[in-house]
Amino acid sequence: MHIPDGYLGPATCAAGFAVMAPLWAFASRKVKKTLRAKQVPLLAIAAAFAFVIMLFNVPIPGGTTGHAVGGVLAAILLGPWAACIAVSVALVIQALLFGDGGITAVGANCFNMAFVLPFVGYGVYRLISGSSPVTSVRRVVAAGIAGYIGLVVASLCAGIEFGLQPIFHHTASGQALYCPYGLKIAISAMVGEHLLVFGWVELIATALVIKFLQKQEPALLQPETEVRI
């Protein structure tokens, strides 16, 4: 899901930043307004948590493993706006310090994983969980489905971004200048692997973490918890 440099053309990269800039500004204004000075370190620690969560290899049926992105989990624990900042910070650090995900593609990567993933996932979670008790099974199911749908929708966005490249950027002879695959191939490849493999990893990880927190620290899942923004 981390798009490296060179896959997207200048128009898509610029659009990624153009869309994310007001979202980051709004998110930081909202977080600044709601977050007390005391909670600034929490944002940094949450970003670090969003970063390291991608390191956990989750065993999936079939004997192989995969890693979760954790965007929906961060949204459930922190609220979608704070999750947007936390995941964006994690993605910027991955791109700048570890070369994972391109610098020119930071805007597009943040749009997919720090905006679409947490917001879609959080919306689905709220929709399914409704007003059920914090410790109910429904919340666990809601978290799992939210993780799955959030990731698949984010992968659809990445597929569309890839697929637009040969349409936007090609030479007169038909040579593609960036990602060479059109919408049909790019969307099928991206959505297919997330529907079949990575979506399930996200589902398992998100649902089990919520289930664990229900038992150990249910207060952190209360809608009125002070950290949720």
Binding site: Q39, P41, I45, F49, V58, A205, L208, L220
Partner: peptide, 24 residues
């Protein structure tokens, strides 16, 4: 294995959450 990883992820969050007050 899945339970173990989930417990570790959740444990990491709890630890991180508690850490932020000390950091502040």
């Amino acid at each position: 294995g899945r339970r173990l990883v989930a417990a570790n992820m959740a444990g990491m969050w709890l630890r991180s959450y508690r850490l932020h007050t000390q950091v502040y």
